[in-house]
């Protein structure tokens, strides 16, 4: 690990001001990606700004949506009665992230800010049409994820919360990478008043994406069989030693079927 300094932000404004004052400041949320990366000297920072006391934690029911504070830990989403009642698929997704230790530390804001192409949360945001709240604006999930590890956030912008509209039905099915147990393919299917959304994580070369073909088929008939004839283009999918693109394409179909069946 390269030498760094550590400071706790007392609120969001303080975090933004500390971030502006640092050369290479980094926000520390749950630290489940950042800390290992720093320890391996794959990243460096002259200032780690810890958000744990910045008042960003908590889950609230806003009527049509569930609002989850950026520093809310996965375990809190997993066990929240409010989430389990309104969007059980989201609680189930949180319960499958990493292991118990990761879920006790990792946060939704950290995951969404990092936008790991194999992370679970981005698919939920995209399929449910979530809104990312920051210190300065609201960003629709569809505009937020801009590529692998890329987001619409400005350099010094801080996520404060994510709001998820309550769907009619939703389900997330993950095919984990056997080693890391990140998603090798994860499919979040949501049925809302505006139609069916299918978001895929773990597979796309540009990170999480929605699949128009699967959505069209499911909008015409919401059944596992309806996607049998939908082609999943593997030319935009990742291919690595764990899974070739055509296998990932096949898994997208299979995981979508399972998600639909579970809705």
């Amino acid at each position: 690990m390269y030498a760094t300094t550590y400071a706790k932000a007392k609120d969001v404004a303080d975090a933004v001001s500390q971030l502006k004052g640092a050369d290479e400041g980094k926000l520390l949320a749950g630290g489940q990606t950042l800390i290992p990366t720093l320890k391996q000297r794959l990243a460096s920072s002259d200032c780690l700004i810890d958000l744990s006391d910045a008042g960003l934690s908590g889950i609230s029911d806003e009527g049509g949506s569930i609002r989850i504070g950026a520093m809310t830990r996965h375990v809190e989403v997993e066990t929240s009665e409010m989430v389990k009642k309104a969007i059980p698929a989201l609680a189930a997704l949180a319960s499958g992230i990493g292991d118990r230790q990761v879920r006790n530390c990792g946060t939704i804001g950290g995951s969404v800010a990092n936008n790991d192409p194999s992370a679970c949360y981005p698919s939920a945001l995209l399929a449910l049409g979530a809104t990312v709240h920051t210190d300065r604006r609201d960003i629709a999930a569809g505009d937020y994820f801009t590529g692998m590890f890329e987001t619409a956030l400005d350099e010094d912008e801080v996520i404060t919360a994510v709001s998820f509209p309550k769907p009619e039905a939703a389900s997330y099915v993950k095919f984990p990478n056997p080693a890391s147990r990140y998603a090798m393919v994860g499919v979040f299917v949501a049925k809302t008043s505006s139609g069916v959304a299918v978001a895929v994580t773990g597979a796309g070369q540009d990170g999480v994406f929605r699949h128009g073909g699967l959505e069209a088929a499911l909008n015409s008939s919401f059944s596992a069989e309806s996607i049998d004839s939908v082609a999943v283009d593997d030319s935009v999918l990742m291919s690595d030693m764990h899974a070739s693109a055509d296998y990932r394409a096949h898994l997208i179909t299979q995981m979508t079927k399972r998600a639909v069946a579970a809705c």
């Binding site: 056997p178 080693a179 890391s180 990140y182 030693m241 764990h242």
Partner: peptide
């Protein structure tokens, strides 16, 4: 243990080497 053709060990962490 997966070496690529350049002789790089691609499975050099538990993210990629599956126990």
């Amino acid at each position: 243990a997966h070496y690529n053709e350049d002789g790089q060990l691609l499975t050099a962490s538990y993210m990629d080497y599956c126990m």
